[in-house]
Structures are given as C-alpha cells and as structure tokens.
Design a protein around this nucleic acid. Sequence first.
DNA 1: GTCTATAGTTAGATAGAC
DNA 2: GTCTATCTAACTATAGAC
Lengths: 199, 199
Amino acid sequence: MREEKEKLILESAAEEFARFGFEGASIANIAKRAKIPRPNLHYYFSSKRKLYEHILFNTLQLWNSAFDGVSAADDPTIAISKYVRAKVMYSKTNPKASKIFASEIIHGGSNLSNFLQNDYRIWLREKTSIIREWADNGQMDPVDPHHLMFMIWGATQFYADFSVQVEKGLERDADDEEFEKVADTITQIILKGCGIIRK
Amino acid sequence: MREEKEKLILESAAEEFARFGFEGASIANIAKRAKIPRPNLHYYFSSKRKLYEHILFNTLQLWNSAFDGVSAADDPTIAISKYVRAKVMYSKTNPKASKIFASEIIHGGSNLSNFLQNDYRIWLREKTSIIREWADNGQMDPVDPHHLMFMIWGATQFYADFSVQVEKGLERDADDEEFEKVADTITQIILKGCGIIRK
DNA sequence: GTCTATAGTTAGATAGAC
DNA sequence: GTCTATCTAACTATAGAC
C-alpha cells in the first residue's frame, strides 16, 4: 500500500522534474498528477529536495546497471555495438531519467558530487583502459579513450535530452524503426571512424 | 550609458540562468551580480521573463551566425572539419549560452517554438540536402544526413553542456590544448566513419 | 535615472481534526 | 493514514520619494 503510493508519487515527480527542472517543479503539481492532496505527499516524502534526491538516486541505479557487461576480452566490434545500442535504447525507453540527469549536470551537478567523485570516475577509468588495450593490440586506431566515450554519450543521449530538436528536425515522429536506424548509424560511424571495421 | 548597464545586466543574467535555469534564477541574485539594487534592474527589463527571452534571443543570433559559411560546392572534408571545429570552439568559448539553450530544449523548448518551427527547420533542411548531395556524388557513404548532424551536435555540445562530467572524467582541467584534441578526435572519427577520408 | 519601502503572490511545509 | 486550514518564507514587481 505504502509502497504503491510511493511509486505513484515518484512516477509523477519524475515526470514533473523532467519537464520543469528542480526549481520549476511544484509539489502542488506533483500531487495533482498523482491524484493525492498536497499535504499527503509530505507524509511520504518530507521535502521537495528529498523527493528529488530519491529520483536522482533511482536514475543513477538505472544508469549504473544498464551498461556493465563489457569487458576487455570482448571483441571491440561487439562490445561497442552493444554499448551504443544499449545507450540509444535507454534514450528511447527512459527519456525522463536522462533529462533529469542532464538538467542536474548542466546546472552544476551539486546533487551528484558524490557519484561524480567516486563511482563515475572508477567506471570511466575501467572503460577507458579497455579502449586503450584495444588500441595497443592494434584492434583499433589510437583514439583518445575519454573523448571516444564522451562522443558516444553525446551522440546517444542527444535523442533523449534534445528530443524536441530531434522531432522538429526530422519533421516526423521518432518511432521504433527510427531508433534502430539511429543505433545503426552511430555504431557504423564510430566503428569505421575508429578503424575497428573497414566497410 | 544605458547600453552599458543593459549589457552588464545581460551578462549577469546569462551567468545566473546558465547556473540555475529559468525558475532557479532569481532577480535579486542577478542584480547582486550586476551590483545594482533590485528595482533598478526592473527599470531596464520589465520582467524576469523578458530578460530571459532577451538572452535566449542573443543566444540564437550567436548560434545562427556561427555556422553559416558551408556550401555544397565545398569539399566535405573541409566543410565538416570547419564545422566541427567551429562547434567545439563555440562550446569552449560560450558554455553559458550553450547551457541556457540546452536547458530550454530539455524542458520542452516552449520559448523557442517559433525558432524551432521556422529558422531551425530551414537551416537543417539546407544542411541535410548538402550532405545528401555529397553522398549522391560518391564523396561519402550514404549516411542519414539528419542523424549525422545530430551526432555532430551531440558530440560537440557535450563539452559545453556536460562540462562537469567532462572535467570530472578527464581528472584534469580542459584547457585550450584539450579542446584542440577534442576537435581533432571528433573530426577524424566523423570523416573516416562516413567514408570521406581513408586514413 | 536611482533607490527605499512595500505590496502582492506563490509555493513549500506543518498543525491538528478525523 | 488522510486531509482541511493555515503558517511562513521567498521572490517578483511596483509605488513613490529623491
């Protein structure tokens, strides 16, 4: 019962925070979305900040878990294809989470300083060293690993964070088929651009 | 005199909006930054919204003017190199403008609907048709032009909008040299990845 | 043109009855 | 656990003296 209500509130809050950002979001609106009276919300989450932190934390868990299974032993073609596809599909499936995270980072990321200082660095060191190994083994061109990662992030997240620009630019809705094409296009350019594949 | 003060206010406001977003920014803080009393600010800009719109408009002008000189006659190698470099350097020089724009788009872009419906579409149609021509002429692989543009935007803007993530990830400051490397890396991957260059 | 004082409004949070 | 009524703080905006 309690769990269900909390989930409902969190869902409504994610919607609101993604749409308006932390300051722009209002407790009144979140309560309205969840169809409960304002003070009732305070019973479950003591403050707006707490609610926001809860959602950021959920977002991070999703982020952390979604992109793990890549190791150095893997072939770079397979590993990068998988990773790019996972990121693109994450943009399709979780645009709200991506937007909340993006907005937080853009505005300084002060609520994520702990994550950025620890988990994030460790995760990135791990991945960049795998890329470095691939380059050392001659499996790809000697591309700067950090900038390759940033390029993949920027390219894939764009479809969640800047969905307005994507849809206005395409002059059509971005359906499932379109997202397949996105994954294919980005994968192709990255793999060929890094000298991992020839064609 | 009036012009100078307005410029000072706009500068302070850009700083504040980039840092906190529209709702998060406060007139009091902007006035403090500009070192003038609050009500004085209202003398120059009647409302917070007007001030914000002014800044968005400036941002768009900058955006529009910075990336024009590319035509179909140009060699794709030169045109894309120039464009990517211009975008990366824009991220280095104007991170605030980029962040304000990004935050606006992420949160729905309602203040940009006019721009997105008109100038933006026209501009993008022009550029995508140039790319299509290049592909038709066999000067590059048949890559979807829209997704190529989005990829370039995502990759290059990342360094402005997500600068926190970049700096924490690199574990060092992003200096001029680093931005040169960024431009080189992105250019290389895009050109080679699209079959424009071989090496 | 500038600034002090203040009006008006919104929104986050709580008290206390049910 | 739920909800009505209310408190309090913050912030935009304006009136009006200088």
